[in-house]
Nucleic acid binder design. Structure first.
Lengths: 226, 226
DNA sequence: GGCGACCCTCTCCGAACGGATAGGGGGCCT
DNA sequence: AGGCCCCCTATCCGTTCGGAGAGGGTCGCC
């Protein structure tokens, strides 16, 4: 396994007396344990100023109140968080802060999409703590950060698990199946007629080798979809 | 929302010199970030000696090598870990160490089963860092620890969503639903006629609050059945 | 231009599903 | 004994599925 991308500390660690130019980071995560530990670590070991928020609205409020951060870390699974939409929302806030996602489950495809949208980085919680400080500095400098081995599995999964053989509409229909909806409900959600949904459902059955909607839903779940 | 528990520096950080009678804790977790941060926190704020392991075999090897710990923390989701079996395995090792689980997903029913098996505690990762040190000390004293509100939802869920309200036949029918089988197939598997299966299916819908077989299958999966 | 995708709409039909209702049978309890 | 729960069987009916046709539409690419 390759060494993940990290930057050289280049210079000595700041003493805990922070210079006026020290980094300011906002950490938004509902896991108190992780959040508190991160604060302690970044502050004591990295000489980085931190603030925290337990959910997305708090984080947004903090930024809109005028606080300026070099970097904002968002947990992808916390109250108020809606995946990449929330990421874009925070990035669009005034202040021009850079935003990175931090994830426990670590979905490589989401990592790629986030980086594609301009996220500052994607930090799996499996990241060694030492790498974290480097990553934070790296991202605050305007670079994008993600563990290399992490993205490598992303490409492997992008071809393999094959939910990508489905068309956009078929994926949307499958999403409805997983939710236990009827064809009629799915049709309403998608703004099309029921026969159309039935067609999409039928074709996606063939693609994923299912014989009925329940099997299709279970297969989608197994694959980690939705 | 309450002020999140943040580590109040309250005085100076302990110098790294520890008392001889301090507690020794082994932390086994594959999340480097969390693990490193926990170490730093427990050592600096709690005056607790720590060792770490990135997976279950390493932890077991460390104990079998003769290391003595007051408490062992095991992540329920890490390499080599097989739920409660691994918990019992570690508890059975020589040394008589007490073992607690630490979990990110936080399944109340697993918490209760773990405590029933004699685990020292069950720590969700949503636990505030300040509570953690108290919990560790508490468990090292021989008590069992689990967050109260956590177990309260456990009881609520134990009575509520539990599949145990289903009769034997209904459970067997539900098993067929999860497999994506038709009523006719289920009937053949169970050795009964199709109308009977339809009745079981219908009644179990009411019990688990589903409206069709796909929803029932998903609910069963959510609950960890099959 | 033609070609191949993906998408949408519609019809037809047999099968399966979801729900209600009405029985009969065996245990287990008071 | 009767009462209760669970299991099994059955019939009826309206809806939904699953599968098959046969169209027409928009793209992008050769």
């Amino acid at each position: 396994m390759l060494e993940q991308s990290r930057i050289a500390p280049e210079g000595t660690l700041q003493p805990e007396r922070r210079a006026a130019a020290s980094l300011r980071v906002l950490i938004a995560d509902d896991h108190d344990l992780l959040r508190d530990a991160l604060v302690l670590y970044l502050e004591s070991e990295g000489g980085i100023e931190t603030e925290t928020a337990p959910d997305l609205p708090s984080a947004v409020a903090r930024i809109e109140a005028g606080a300026v951060f070099d970097l904002v870390l968002l947990d992808v699974m916390m109250p108020g968080m809606n995946g990449l939409d929330s990421l874009q929302e925070v990035m669009a806030l005034r202040g021009g802060q850079r935003v990175a996602l931090i994830s426990g489950t670590g979905s490589p495809e989401m990592a790629e999409r986030a980086l594609g949208l301009g996220a500052a980085g994607y930090l799996p919680k499996t990241l060694p703590a030492k790498s974290l400080i480097n990553a934070v500095r790296f991202m605050a400098m305007g670079e994008q950060y993600a563990p290399l081995d992490f993205l490598r599995t992303a490409q492997a999964e992008a071809t393999n698990p094959l939910a990508s053989r489905l068309s956009r509409r078929e994926l949307e229909a499958l999403k409805g199946l997983v939710a236990g909806k009827s064809n009629k409900e799915i049709a309403r959600d998608l703004g099309v007629t029921e026969p159309t949904v039935k067609l999409h459902v039928k074709t996606l059955y063939r693609k994923i080798d299912a014989h009925n909607r329940t099997q299709a839903a279970m297969i989608a779940r197994e694959a980690g979809l939705f």
